[in-house]
Amino acid sequence: MTATAPDGARSFRWRRRSVLPGFGLSMGYTIAYLSLIVLIPLAGLGIRSASLGWDQFWKIAFDQRVVSALQLSFGAALIAAIINTVFGVLVAWVLVRYRFPGRRWLDAAVDLPFALPTAVAGIALATLYAPNGPFGMILDDWFGIKVGFTSTGVVMALIFVGLPFVVRTVQPVLEEIDRETEEVAATLGARRWRTVTRVIFPALFPAILTGFALSFARGVGEYGSVIFIASNLPYQSEIAPLLIIIKLEEHNYAGATAIATIMLVISFAMLFVINLLQAWSRKWFGHE
């Protein structure tokens, strides 16, 4: 700033506390963008379902078919996310920590569920796990487990589509972990298990939680792959997104938006809790 600058300009500049310029512009853009892409369409959902009135709304919400569909959608997504968290961390660990032939291929393969049309994945899984498919037959004959066209199949499909989220969020954080902290733990007498649980895991925890949340959210909203592997029987293996489509096809738009609104509220509440948990864990583990 030059000495000849008028007082007004000077005081304006001094009011800025941040060294990062462009707060007004970027904040305005962010709000406008989020409104257009996310908030306005979702608000439309709310308004549409509000036209039903409370009585109608609760009737749809507590309809047995709707409740079972919601239970299946959220329950399967939760189970799939938990399984993905365990095995996704394992996959990330192997990809980061070990060097072996074909590592790059394996690394690239992790992204395939991202890229593949989910319907293709659903058909592939259905072929494999159907009662007469190669895996489905073995599982049924040997263990008596039916996967294809059951709610287990729903979980299977959600595991497939959610895996990359955990791997891809944990991988970079794991790469950043300093070898030296592990070496220091060893010199201090910590056995390997103690080092993993006390040194590595706490550092990974926020990333694991993010991966879990993403995988869960993906699972709740998944439609394409599930409808092929599940038999879509009402009360048994019908997911909420499918129910919405069915209502739409029946031109029952109010019913569809009501279910969507319920899903939205539950999803938002769960993601909000996960975010809180994450903020808390970051503080607890000293990331801030």
């Binding site: 030296e180 902290t181 010199t187 910590a190 006390r198 706490p202 583990f285 000293g286």
Partner: peptide
Amino acid sequence: RIQDRGVGFVFQHYALFKHMRVMDNIAFG
């Protein structure tokens, strides 16, 4: 094994456990 040698090792870049408080870092061993 390293764990049984009883060496105190200090690295150039400290290698502190970032998620632990100072007291827990020191008490780790």
